[in-house]
Design a binder for these strands. Structure first.
Lengths: 173, 173
DNA sequence: CGAAAGTAGCTTAGTGGTAAGCTAGTTTCC
DNA sequence: GGAAACTAGCTTACCACTAAGCTACTTTCG
């Protein structure tokens, strides 16, 4: 059992203690990091899903609109650029664009320079909606973070995560 | 643009710079944390998927076997306990158990104390396979972590993540 | 120029999950 | 003891994704 006082234990500590009891040979240091990363990602993903649902969009649809929004005016990218940025297959992107186009949040138009291609552009309504949704989603994240860590710790955490992410995404992962 | 030298920038820095250019009013501090958590979770998830594929199981199936394994002898839990632990609907659990039972890695038997219920138990082959897979998966995680951070930084990161996770999973999320 | 190779987006089949609803069995409580 | 409420696991319908393959178009290069 970990020596850590009860109020500072989390579900991952419990799992690691279980492993230590049945497989004391295992090195669990990496699990302390990646187990928590996994659970945090899932918990916050669920929260963001709920936050965006108020705007009638899913998290994946939010990501499409947000990518267009932060590309700047004229808020236009190709399906290819979108699926590459969002690490999605072209089939998956077709489905998301279908839904968002039906909802009137973006439109597809022919690429004038390449007749194979399309341009995807935010509509006025799409721009308005994503600007509100980005604000609401950001507020949820900010509140979750500041409830747990002060600004200094949060900055430290971000810096450590940057190092780990750069190394992990860098080397074929 | 961020002042950080190029070799210390990661993909999340680029996204945050884009937001700063088009929406300078946004507070992006929380995105520095949760954006990286999300991407790390996805990147490592893909790697683990590949690691477990060598044993003929998916990540979700690994989680079922691992939960049984770390529960200790006699490696028996109910479908209900498993789906609660893994935050999965009972329908999803039925599917995973079907596949694992067909593969001969676990067996379902009636619960002697409750005729509605079942007991799910690791077979000898399931025990052997999960012990190897846990080792292989742990090695992948350990390698990814130690390639990026020394032990002290890794411990610090784990501690910060513990604080954040405890707060996040604690308050309805 | 014209053939070969490459690229864009869509379609189809298959996968793994959720939500809702079902039956069988158990618990509660008068 | 028996009705009502609850619980366990499965089934069904649906959804979003991937992988593979298609057509249309573009680029490369002899």
């Amino acid at each position: 059992m970990s020596e850590r006082p009860e109020q500072h234990r989390d579900p991952v500590d419990a799992i690691i203690d279980q492993w230590a009891a049945v497989r004391p040979d295992l090195d669990t240091a990496a699990m302390e990091v990646f187990g928590r990363v996994h659970r945090l990602s899932r918990a916050m993903g669920d929260r963001m899903e709920r936050a965006y649902a108020r705007f009638g969009i899913s998290r994946g649809e939010f990501d499409v609109l947000a990518t267009l929004r932060r590309s700047g005016e004229p808020y236009t990218l190709s399906p290819r650029q979108l699926s590459a940025t969002l690490m999605l297959t072209t089939g998956g992107m077709t489905g998301r664009l279908d839904k968002l186009e039906r909802a009137g949040l973006l439109r597809r138009s022919p690429d004038p320079h390449d007749r194979r291609g399309l341009q995807v552009t935010l509509t006025d309504r799409g721009l308005e909606l994503i600007d509100e949704a980005v604000g609401a989603g950001g507020a949820v994240q900010t509140e979750a973070l500041s409830a747990a860590l002060d600004a200094e710790k949060a900055g430290h955490l971000a810096a450590l995560l940057r190092e780990l992410l750069a190394a992990t995404e860098g080397q074929g992962g």
